[in-house]
C-alpha cells in the first residue's frame, strides 16, 4: 500500500497516531501523524498528501456516515485524525503555491447555542481544502453581513438546531440579500429542510455534514 493510501485509510479508520488506543486492531501501527511526517520526509508533493490522503479519507468517512455505516463517534475520530494531519501540513502549506479552494464563513445563527454539527461541517470543509472562518454560535445577521462584506466571494454557512432560531436564519439570509451581496449561502441543521432553504432564498441545503464539500464546490463552480 502506498503512503497516500495508508494516510487515507488511517483517516477513514480514525487512527490519529501510533500511541492512540483506537482502533484497537491497529495497536502499535502508525497513525495519520506518523504517516504524514513520513510522506514529508519522503518529499512527497504536499498537495497530493492533502488531497489524496486526508481529503480523500474524509470523503469516504462522509459517505459512510451518510449511508448509516458510520456514526458520530467514527466521524469525530476521523475528524481528529484529519486535524492532526492538517496541523503537520499547515506550516508546509504556508508560502506554497497551493491555493485553498475557497473561503467559507460559518456560524450558528442568533439565539442558537448548538455547535456540534457546525463544528463538524467546519472540520470537513477545512479537510476538503477550504479556508474556514468560524464565527461560532449565536451569530447575528449583522455579523454574517459584515463578514460576507469582508470576504467577498466567500460562501456563507448558517446552522440552526432550534425551530425557533430558523427565523434568525431567515433574517440573516434576508439581510444579505437586501444589501445585494452575491455570496452564496448554504444552510443546514436539524430543523432545516430543503423547502425551508428554498423559502428563505438560500442557495443550498444539506442534511448531513458529510455533503458539505461537494455542495460548496458546486456553489463555487469547482469540479469535484
Amino acid at each position: 500500500m502506498g503512503i497516500l493510501t495508508e494516510i487515507k485509510d488511517a483517516v477513514v479508520r480514525g487512527r490519529v497516531d501510533i500511541k492512540s488506543p483506537y482502533p484497537p486492531e491497529m495497536a502499535g501501527k502508525p497513525g495519520v501523524v506518523e504517516l504524514v511526517e513520513q510522506a514529508l520526509e519522503e518529499k512527497m508533493d504536499i498537495s497530493m498528501v492533502l488531497k489524496e490522503g486526508l481529503v480523500s479519507g474524509m470523503e469516504v468517512v462522509g459517505d459512510k456516515f451518510s449511508s448509516g455505516e458510520y456514526f458520530l463517534p467514527d466521524m469525530l475520530m476521523s475528524a481528529q485524525a484529519m486535524k492532526a494531519g492538517m496541523s503537520i501540513l499547515d506550516p508546509h502549506l504556508r508560502g506554497k503555491s497551493i491555493q485553498k479552494l475557497g473561503k467559507v464563513v460559518i456560524g450558528t445563527v442568533k439565539g442558537d447555542m448548538h455547535d456540534i454539527g457546525k463544528n463538524l461541517v467546519a472540520v470537513i470543509l477545512e479537510g476538503g481544502g477550504f479556508e474556514v472562518i468560524d464565527l461560532g454560535i449565536d451569530v447575528s445577521a449583522e455579523a454574517f453581513l459584515s463578514n460576507a462584506e469582508e470576504h467577498p466571494g466567500s460562501v456563507i454557512g448558517m446552522s440552526a438546531l432550534l425551530t425557533t432560531t430558523r427565523e434568525s436564519m431567515r433574517a440573516s439570509v434576508e439581510l444579505l440579500r437586501e444589501k445585494g451581496l452575491s455570496n452564496k449561502i448554504i444552510v443546514g441543521g436539524a430543523v432545516v429542510t430543503q423547502a425551508f432553504a428554498d423559502e428563505i432564498g438560500a442557495d443550498a441545503f444539506t442534511k448531513d455534514a458529510a455533503k458539505a464539500v461537494p455542495l460548496v464546490k458546486g456553489l463555487l463552480g469547482i469540479a469535484s
Binding site: G14, S20, P21, Y22, P23, F71, L72, P73, D74, L76, M77, Q80, I116
Partner: peptide, 11 residues
C-alpha cells in the same frame, strides 16, 4: 457532553 461521550464510546 455528547462529543466526549461519542469519542469515549471508542476509547
Amino acid at each position: 457532553g455528547l462529543e466526549t461521550l461519542a469519542l469515549w464510546t471508542l476509547v
